[in-house]
Design a protein around this nucleic acid. Structure first.
Lengths: 104, 104
DNA sequence: GGCGTTGTACGATGAGTACCGTACAAATGT
DNA sequence: ACATTTGTACGGTACTCATCGTACAACGCC
């Protein structure tokens, strides 16, 4: 017996913490995901990333990024799209994302 | 039989990695140390920080910061002084430290 | 209905790490 | 010479986390 899919949790802007963001981005793979997301500008399907890891591991990394408030997830059919929460991050931690991405 | 004290390793500027810095600063206690170091401007003795942890744990955190290239350590007698490697960090990751400290 | 696609939940495993207490070393002060 | 101060090395413990395989769910398509 397996549970039904749970609604995706996204922290509100005020609850995004610096610790959480730094921790989320301190993993090379996650930083790379974020870098690619920033490059493409908008939304991008999970599946369009060519990752050297198992599907379940990718799920884990996207969850860490989402729960840290770094990315926004949207489901559409069987697919899932992610985008950077740039406005929220810039409002809460001005300059942080830019400096990290510029130096990635 | 205990080993003699080893020379303190500090990574050269070029070997400081973004991952390493982000990881080092993703711990609340270490970020707080760095914030206090930045506040005081220059060097500061380890012992002058009032930490809620055991001495050996403090040694651990200072080592993580030092090996990530975030701080410089200098021994003088039985005491040890730390300072931020601000010039190195600013040169390697422009804006990063400022934006993190500004938002800490 | 049946099949492929896409991603999740779960359980397990191995690596890393935050923390502690204790024993110690090196320098300083008395 | 001895005690104090300051920080380290070590061993241990508990917790986190990155990773995987497998079983599954939701959806779309034939």
């Amino acid at each position: 017996m397996y549970a039904t899919r749970i609604d995706l949790y996204h922290p509100p802007r005020d609850e995004i913490t610096l610790q959480g963001v730094l921790h989320a981005l301190s993993d090379p793979l996650r930083l790379d995901l974020v870098r690619q997301l920033a490059e493409c500008g908008g939304e991008r399907a999970c599946g369009s990333f060519d990752l050297p890891i198992a599907k379940s591991t990718a799920t884990h990394h996207w969850r860490v990024l989402r729960e840290a408030g770094v990315v926004k997830a949207r489901e559409e059919g069987t697919k899932k799209y992610h985008s950077l929460r740039r406005a929220d991050l810039d409002a809460r931690f001005p300059g942080l994302l830019d400096s990290i991405l510029a130096n990635a």
